[in-house]
Design a protein around this nucleic acid. Structure first.
Lengths: 255, 255
DNA sequence: CGCTTGGTTGACCATGTTCAATGTTAGTGG
DNA sequence: CCACTAACATTGAACATGGTCAACCAAGCG
């Protein structure tokens, strides 16, 4: 309807390529996807609960959180979406939003119509598979999140989260490193199933232990190995190693 | 390699049909899938952690749990798989097991080769979409699980779990009802992020409140409405209403 | 009958919550 | 440039939910 524009979804194509083999033709088709830009103010919903969506939502800048809710109004963040993520890819097959997506800071996104994504997926089984795989990597992260919230104490949970975000932000980490993670301590609490107050106390512990520090929305990792241990973190679930395992393509097996 | 047989995957086709529209041709192709039966003793892994899988795993009878793990060896169940579930469908696109699948009682499964599933998906985009959707419904359940474990107290968590399982088992529920759920209190603890001991105490509360009771692996729901309220349960995420929302098919949109 | 698995209970303890006050920083209008 | 405000971080004291440890019970099975 509105002003559709050909836009910079190349990071999305790169993301897909990082775990799935795409032919030049397929990449071409993906880069022809149109999208319309949208600016969302902090604390505003990008996708409201119990609504139908018609677009997937690529994060260009800022950060978004996916929220589950309690009837008491207590919120639980089930995922952080950072620049480069196609936050709502699953909505292509499940357009009924069962959880809300909200901008945590001022965020700019690209809305990509489901119709276009479906069209590409229908024409290229390899793309359909890449979409499916991308979603399942998200599900693997969610699965880790369950373990994190269910079976680890406060400092382990936070350490794990900082490790995950470090890897996802692509922070360079020999031993130390830093990345911008524009969320509040209350957000961290919503993500880890803790209260903001207890996040604060736990951050102090991690800081005094010389592991991580956070100031002005910047996470500073002081001891990567120590933090990994403290967070019981193993990056394999993030799908980084998909490159090694030689992903097959649906097309290769078609009869 | 072994004795492949044409087998009863019809419940799986029914499951897919419950949320996705499949043509007769597609159903035909699915019912031609071959699979080999496997009996798994209680407490034995069906899929071991950090291994490559070549088959998806359809549950015929019994019950299986997907486990995440702590380095302290504490376990967290991230999903229960009951008869009719294709437990490992996601492994078609992510064959590296990042979590273990274990039989919780003696369980019989059908192993369906990835190659066959991929072949069907490649030939029929509508089937690929149904697979993808089926996986995303599982992810929606996982997302609820995060909320459950992160933001609800013990009795709410358990009530929610009993509600979810009631719906998934298809228990008939006007006001009361019952279903067989062959797990131990320790399993319930592993699922809800509680200890077995605390599960026991909480079960007593729910029992005395006249909501649910469990004896000899049988869940007896004494007050469905009360239990739903206590568990803050809303079934919409289970994908039951997909029928109403007229699912589209990739093929319809191909150019 | 004795063994094993799982359910039940109690006493004590610990992690994280609640409530409330205080500090700190960035932004805004005079 | 400063006062004022809003949002967020920090801290303390009292409290509660759930964990730990340990004992005992009940059912199923060789």
């Amino acid at each position: 309807m509105a002003d559709y524009v050909i836009t910079g979804l190349h990071p999305f194509i790169d993301r897909l390529s990082s775990h799935s083999i795409l032919s030049d033709l397929e990449k071409q088709a993906l880069s022809n996807l149109s999208a319309r830009p949208l600016q969302v103010k902090a604390q505003r919903d990008i996708v409201r609960l119990d609504t139908q969506t018609n677009d997937a939502c690529f994060i260009v800048d800022g950060i978004a959180g996916r929220f589950g809710q309690n009837l008491n109004g207590e919120r639980q963040i089930t995922a952080f979406h950072i620049p480069g993520d196609m936050a709502d890819l699953h909505s292509v097959v499940l357009p009924n939003a069962t959880s809300a997506l909200q901008a945590l800071t001022d965020t700019s996104v690209l809305l990509v119509p489901h119709t276009e994504l479906r069209s590409v997926a229908a024409r290229f089984p390899g793309v359909a598979e890449a979409f499916w795989r991308e979603c399942m990597i998200g599900a693997a992260m969610l699965s880790q999140w369950v373990v994190n919230v269910g079976r680890r104490d406060a400092s382990t949970r936070l350490a794990h989260l900082f490790c995950e975000m470090a890897v996802r932000y692509g922070a360079t980490l020999d031993q130390a490193g830093s990345y911008r993670f524009p969320v509040t301590q209350d957000h961290l609490g919503d993500a880890t199933g803790l209260t903001g107050v207890h996040v604060n106390r736990t951050m102090k512990l991690l800081r005094n232990a010389g592991l991580v520090r956070m100031q002005l929305k910047e996470v500073e990792i002081m001891d990567w190995n120590g933090l990994r241990l403290a967070g019981q973190f193993d990056a394999s679930y993030l799908g980084m190693r998909m490159r090694e395992t030689q992903p097959l393509r649906l097309l290769d097996l078609a009869l």
